[in-house]
Amino acid sequence: MPDLGLEVLFKGQNMVRLLGGLGVALKISLIAVGVSIPLGILLGILMAGKNRVVKAILRVYLEIIRIMPQLVLLFIFFFGTTRIFGWDLSGELAAIIVFILWGTAEMSDLVRGALISIPKHQYESGEALGLSGRQIYFFIVVPQAVRQLIPLSINLVTRMIKTTSLILMIGVVEVLKVAQQIIEANRMVSPNAAFGVYLAVLVLYFIACWPISMLAGYLEKKWR
């Protein structure tokens, strides 16, 4: 069997360090998701509403955030705003801001989609039963929309976690950076460390995302 450089993983604190790196990525995505979901719900409700000006403004925000690769957004915040406004922004903070902006946009679009997907006759049968507009919204529309939304917002979490891998590119020390450091430190003793360590990183991300995806898939099937 060829040397796969797996032994590096079990040397000293290497595995713990990798996990710590993943922890940074997870922390950033959880903070971003935690803020994005409530904000996104709010904006989504506004986007499904009747105010044209508000809708147009939100639409522009959504399209701008959406059309740009997240890495470009990270660059703009990390390199651009610091240059223009002269403030000091750590990579981590820039990442959190960008992921909140992006997550809010995505979430608001999911909420808008779920709200407008409720067929018109659902409102009409609510009215025919003598329910008020508010009652129709809370007893008929929201429960149906929520069922659609939960799996989709869970999926947003995995997308967020996967996207955090990008923060390596603005110098945040996360899994990949730790991996590079470990490989570098062991290049003499284990020349094949790159295989074992990058495999471990791949597996770590998979372990972080896969159960969440499974949960989303399960809920989607159950509530279809």
Binding site: T158, S165, L166, L176, A179, Y198, Y205, F206, C209
Partner: peptide, 12 residues
């Protein structure tokens, strides 16, 4: 493929 980031796939 769906549960790992492209960046990590590329590194691998």
């Amino acid at each position: 493929s769906r549960n790992t980031p492209l960046l990590i796939q590329l590194f691998f």
